[in-house]
């Protein structure tokens, strides 16, 4: 006999998985307006002076339009997730987008175009979106296609296992084993590099990956540490082992070659980091599941490709 709770849990996971998978295949159609809510941390965020909005620049175009178009996610917990009751998109990336919109326009008016890792470069190069905030790891290969401002945040991959599982403490231990990773996440390339003998299975969303780990589809789940910490907090049957084994610098994706806009965004980053706005955004999102103070933001331009 299957308990109702279990059935409900499966149904919930399935639905989450579906929405994630659907959004993955359907890259640009769903556009959700970020409600222009000017409260909390965004209220303290700065606005650019008229002199900084150079004539003929990308920022002037955005300001005239009255809306910043962001390529992002609607299903990434703590980073950019749509709240089903309010419709508001919440999280670290989402708030960064709002802060940038406020800086350019004076109001946090954001339209999120649902992007996927296979469409981000195209969305930027054909001008569908102005910027991408989507845990977009800066790499030299990608930097040949798009420009990166930042890095604005640095994260790392960690390993989660079922509670009590033994024998896995570091990436090399994954060799010869089946490892779960989020589809289209940097975890795939990292595992290939550090544990080439591992078999990788991928699922569309974080809840699906957690479910797969619990159902022994793999012995370990490699994902961004922040997400894993949040998962382990919600679900006591899994645990995070060791400390992050990579450094993933996230950049703000911009159109390739738009140096003027890149400098503008980098100046804004410096400004909000100096004013403590960046730290406030972190505390309100990722900081809710991670102990301690906000980390030191990474040095802008410090990684190859930025």
């Amino acid at each position: 006999m299957v308990s109702m709770r279990r059935v409900a849990a499966v149904a919930a996971v399935s639905m989450v998985g579906l929405s994630a998978a659907c959004s993955g295949t359907d890259s640009t159609s769903s556009a959700v307006p970020g409600a222009p809510k000017d409260n909390g941390v965004i209220a303290q965020a700065p606005v650019a002076s008229a002199a900084e909005i150079l004539p003929g620049s990308t920022m002037e175009k955005i300001k005239q339009r009255g809306e910043l178009i962001v390529g992002g996610s609607l299903d990434a917990p703590l980073l950019s997730q749509q709240n089903p009751t309010t419709g508001e998109v919440e999280g670290f990336d989402a708030d960064m987008g709002k802060a940038l919109a406020k800086y350019i326009i004076g109001q946090p008016k954001v339209k999120i175009v649902n992007a996927a890792s296979e469409t981000r470069e195209a969305l930027l190069s054909n001008g569908t979106v102005d910027v991408v905030f989507q845990t977009y790891t800066i790499t030299p290969e990608r930097a040949a296609q798009v420009a990166f401002a930042g890095p604005y945040y640095s994260s790392g991959l960690s390993i989660a296992v079922k509670k009590g599982a033994a024998g896995i403490a570091k990436p090399e231990d994954l060799n010869g084993k089946t490892v779960i990773a989020g589809a289209n996440t940097p975890a795939i390339t990292a595992i290939k590099k550090l544990a080439p003998q591992a078999t990788i299975v991928t699922f569309g969303s974080d809840p699906e990956c957690v479910q797969a780990l619990k159902q022994d589809r793999g012995v370990a789940y490699v994902q961004d540490e922040t997400l894993l910490v949040a998962d382990a907090q919600k679900d006591p049957s899994i645990q995070v082992v060791g400390s992050p084994f990579t450094t993933d610098p996230y950049g703000i994706g911009l159109k390739h070659g738009d140096d003027q806009f890149k400098k503008f965004v980098n100046d804004w980053l410096t400004k909000i980091q100096g004013q403590g706005v960046w730290q406030q955004i972190w505390k309100g999102s990722l900081g809710t599941v991670v102990q301690g103070e906000a980390p030191t933001p990474p040095q802008i331009g410090s990684v190859p490709g930025s």
Binding site: G17, E141, A183, I200, F203, G204
Partner: peptide, 25 residues
């Protein structure tokens, strides 16, 4: 591909993750 089977689409996704060139891939 959405449920972890690495068939042609999933393979293309993985290559794109590395190369960031969705159009040729």
């Amino acid at each position: 591909a959405a449920v972890g089977v690495v068939e042609l689409t999933a393979a293309a996704n993985r290559v794109n993750l590395l190369e960031a060139q969705p159009i040729p891939i």
